[in-house]
Design a protein around this nucleic acid. Sequence first.
RNA 1: GCCCGGGUGGUGUAGCGGUAACAUAGGGGACUGUGGAUCCCCUGUCUCGGGUUCAAAUCCCGACCCGGGCCCCA
Length: 403
Amino acid sequence: MISKPRGTRDFTPEEMRKRRWLEQKMRSIFEKYGYEEISTPTIEHLDLFTLKSGEGIIEETYAFEDKAGRKLALRPELTAPVMRFYVERFQMETKPIKFYYFGNCFRYDRPQKGRYREFWQFGCELIGSDKPEAIAELIAMAYNILRESGLRNIILRVGNLDILRRFLDGIGARDAEIMRLIDKKDFEELEKKMEEKEFKEFMNFIEIKKIEEIEYEEADRMKEIFEFLEEFAIPYNLDLSIARGLDYYIGVVFEIDAPKLGAEKQICGGGEYNLVPLLGGRKIPTAGFAIGFDRTLLALETEGFKFEEEYKPVYIAYMEGMIKEAIKIVRMVRQHDIKAEMDLMRRSISKSLEYANKKGFNKVIIVAPDEWKKNKVVLKDMEKREQKEVEIESLPHLLKNQA
RNA sequence: GCCCGGGUGGUGUAGCGGUAACAUAGGGGACUGUGGAUCCCCUGUCUCGGGUUCAAAUCCCGACCCGGGCCCCA
């Protein structure tokens, strides 16, 4: 037997119903903010990702050579492809540009709860404005997408790399390794890397919860962003310890967690970055975020969220020798855009009803010879346990009203 | 890549050296024109590969996959 590759998943109809529901929900919210959907290829040149994140990421990327020897990769994320698309096609477009996307990504990781080798990301990029209200709206949208999807237990943390870097410069402790340790919140190692006095200052610094306490000029813009976030009615927490390892992140960064998820609790991350020049485009403000679709769904399920149920099709059962008549009925009903399925097992009426009952159909049409002669069928309501003979012509009307 | 735990019908479990079992689900029937109960019949299982043994689902090793954590998280 051949099973699915490690870290990938099959989705049952029940799971797909939930996924489609959430997908449509999130899509509609992006649209509500005026973002437009784009899509990029599943495979890209490997260089697109190494350029952005360094050679180190190859180990965790599905990288391969095609038959012509090109170095390609299954995309491990979507920001770089979208920026590539922007540089190739949209540099001269009216600003701001607001793109959103939904797609599968691949990382060669050790799978665990909420972490798969094939996973789905929703995300967006805002190109052309770095005004405080633009960043505030972006963060507000991220937060609201999760809230309006039904999540109740989420925490938004907002940091600022300009301020963090300024501070580290001030105590002479800025380097890549320290940024990495801050990102990991590995304070024990940090203590070893810094002088005692510096470390104390640092710990005091990241404890700051009010932006007013920071005196750098970089804090002014941050203050304004927070004012606007309040205007957008978004509860936020200042967290100056958000570091993000990579150099092209600048300015505001933010993360949203669903604390109940455990080790893999971050469901959204984003901020301002500077990637366009790396890809050969003209420098322009860019910011965005990505939402872990699978984790969001997991978080919803953990919170016991009730997903809407779709209405059931009408089920058409028939007496022996009435198959063609049943087909006529199922055709006619479907032509009126009513979901319908007919018995495909040649079941007896008794078994058909047992089946309809088990599968949760509410409406059943029984096609039988006596009624057929009168241009009628039996319409049965499974829940009310009632049935009546109805004119065939009246079926679409009756079914639509009762859907 | 590392550490720990686990893989028995579709699903959930028992068995833990000696005939693979139970529940549930699926198909059919008892009920020849009417559903949730009952009864009967049928289908279907030890993740894979080595090893130990007279004998392995069971013990050992490895692989694969799943779960929890570490690393990483663009």
